[in-house]
Structure formats: structure tokens, C-alpha cells
Design a protein around this nucleic acid. Structure first.
Lengths: 189, 189
DNA sequence: TTAATGGTAGACAGATCTGTCTATTTTGGT
DNA sequence: ACCAAAATAGACAGATCTGTCTACCATTAA
């Protein structure tokens, strides 16, 4: 299981930093130290490798975020912790997520605009999973399902907006500002 | 001024739909009906054409958004109108902005991660311009500069989040949900 | 010892990429 | 009508792209 994972790790690292269409298979092979035939033994095409990279990033990111949130009491504290977590991410304090180049899933959808493409679908599935995670915690502090849905949605939009602002404009405090807004939304009383 | 603009229009259309590195110069030339030498008379490289396309999209988008907001009284109404405007954009009711494929500037930064690259800088400048537009209107209804800054920031993050959610997850009502949140933030009293 | 497995190295095909060059034609101003 | 500027078609170079193929090597199991 070594070579396959080496390929995925290297591909993800390069795709995330430079975009997918900007990176050729040969560069992945060279930096991974793997022969070309080995790649095509494990994957039937470059797109297939891309899918595996997206899947891997999904696992890496989601498990990291979930465990960060689980380090706090469910509900309000966990939701606030999310903003501290992405703040660490923006400021390159999460080595397992690599240096910050925005959201890999957002960036990837920019290169795969067709919503039916398997790569785009995996990115969408990731975002939905994160939303559901937020909603689980929102349910802890809301009195109705729809209220929880609305809260989770608001926090989700703030988080996505912060990612974009941090990456495009280089605003490294975007997460903290988003947290301040979120904080006022949850307990403005 | 005909050929040069034809090239920019065609390049922008293709870059926006498929991403920049996925589109070759030859395809732009063919679809624009322009000869290769003509391109290199007007632009010194593909990157130079990319810059022009980003600049053009900036002008197109900003003027459209500004005029939509100016159709309403400055302040609260104009800020709310922003969400209606992007809602129309998400649902393909703004022909001048082309079919919706997310935010061209966000997508482009996904392919040009270096924040010092001219293309990335132009994208950042666009976002900053939009933020300043929001802040101008926020100042109309806020009692202090910092309060206006915070309001503009909150609305900006909600808008960016909605763009991402609409594109990645295909949520065509993302703008309306963002508007509802924003509405509660401006006048919760 | 032999056979199967899985990796390596690298040539190769065929397509496509950016950018240059030449030679011809079209266009617009005077 | 004439001339200069601008656009055209298309060959071309040199690089790079994905994917296939062959030949060789290392390990391991029968």
C-alpha cells in the first residue's frame, strides 16, 4: 500500500498548491519517485488519481475539523472552536493540511465546473458533510430543526467567506473576524 | 479595437467556464475567429491575455453590481439589493455575466496561488473594491467607522459564502438565505 | 529452481501547448 | 489610386501532455 499512497500524497500536494490542470503526471511521478507504469497499475487515468486525491483531502480535512470541534463541549463551544481551527489553518499551524492555499474543494470546482463530473460531486459531498457536522452541533443549542438549519447555514457561509477572503486577499485574520460575527449571532442577548 | 476585445471576450468566456490552464490559446483563437499573430500583436503572452480577461471581468462585474445597488436608496436597501442581484446571477438571469460558474476571481486564484502574481493581485484588488462598495453603503447606516467596517465585512463574508455554496453544492437559493441572515443582522431591533 | 508478482526505467506514439516566422491579403486613410 | 498598417493562414520549433509498451530487476512462494 506504499506506492499508491505516495502517489496520492504527492498529487494532492501539487494539485493543491498549483491547481490540477497545471500539474502533469510526469511531475507527480518524479516527485513521488514512482515509475509511470506503477501509476497506471493503480489508477486508470489522471482523472482517477484526481478523484483519489480529492477523497484523501476530504478524509484528512474532515477528520481534523471534527476532532478539533470534539475537543470542546458539543454545541456553542464546538462551533466557536471551528473558527479557531480554521484560523490555525490559515496561519499555517496545521502541518497535516499543508500550507494554506485556500480551499482545495473550492479551487477544484473552479477547474471542474460540470456539477455531474465525479470530481465536482466529491467536492460537493465534502461541503455537505461539513455542513452536517455544523448542524449536529447547532441542534444542541437550537429549539427547532429549522432554527438549527439556519444557524448552521449562517456559520457555514461565514466560514466559506473567511476562507475566500484569507486566500484571495491574504487576510490572515479573516477567521477571527468571522468568529466575532458568529459569536454575536449565537448569543446576542 | 475590434479584434483585441474579441479575444478578451472569448478568452474570458472560456476561462470562466473551464478554468485557465484547461484552455489553450489555439481554442481561443479558433472560437474568436482571429489569427494567432494578431493575438501576439496585442498581447505579449498568454498570461498577459489572462490579465486582460481578469481586468475585463472586474469592470463588467463591478459596474453591474454597483448599478444594481444604486437602483436602491443608499444604505440598507442598497445592501439588501446586493443579495437580490447575486441571486439573479446564480440563477442565470444576468446575461452580461454569462452562465454562473462560481466567482471567476476565486476560481482564478485557485490556479494562481502566488499572491504576488499579477493575476492574483488583480483578483484581490477586485474583491477589495467590492468590499469598499459595501462599506460605503454601510457607513450610511452605521454610527462609527469601525462599526461600518464590521458590517461590511459580515455582509461580504455572507456573499462570498453564498457564491461558494451556490457553485460547489448547486444551492440556487444560497443568496436568498444569505439575505435573510443579513437582514436580521442589520435590523434585529 | 521456477514461476508469479510488482516495481523500475525509459522509449515511444500521438496529441497539444506556447510562441515565432513567413508570405499573402485585407483594410483604411489620404 | 496608392500606400502603410493590420489581419490572415499556416508552417514550424520545441516543449510538454497522457497513456502504452517493452525489457529488466527484485522479492517471494511453491
Amino acid at each position: 500500500m506504499g506506492r499508491r499512497q505516495d502517489l496520492i500524497d504527492t498529487a494532492l500536494r501539487l494539485f493543491y498548491e498549483h491547481g490540477i490542470h497545471a500539474i502533469g503526471i510526469n511531475q507527480v511521478l518524479q516527485e513521488a519517485g514512482v515509475a509511470k507504469q506503477t501509476l497506471y497499475n493503480h489508477f486508470e487515468s489522471k482523472d482517477s488519481l484526481v478523484e483519489a486525491a480529492v477523497e484523501h483531502r476530504d478524509k484528512l480535512f474532515f477528520q481534523w475539523l471534527e476532532s478539533r470541534m470534539n475537543s470542546q463541549p458539543a454545541g456553542r463551544e464546538a462551533l466557536m472552536e471551528m473558527f479557531d481551527a480554521v484560523h490555525d489553518w490559515f496561519n499555517d499551524r496545521v502541518p497535516s493540511l499543508q500550507r494554506f492555499y485556500g480551499c482545495f474543494f473550492i479551487n477544484t470546482c473552479g477547474e471542474y465546473s460540470d456539477p455531474d463530473h465525479p470530481v465536482h460531486r466529491r467536492c460537493a459531498a465534502h461541503k455537505t458533510k461539513v455542513f452536517e457536522l455544523l448542524k449536529r452541533h447547532a441542534l444542541e443549542i437550537c429549539t427547532s430543526e429549522t432554527e438549527a438549519d439556519e444557524l448552521a447555514n449562517a456559520l457555514f457561509l461565514l466560514k466559506e467567506g473567511a476562507i475566500v477572503k484569507a486566500h484571495v486577499e491574504g487576510d490572515l485574520d479573516a477567521a477571527l473576524k468571522a468568529k466575532a460575527i458568529a459569536s454575536r449571532m449565537i448569543s446576542p442577548h
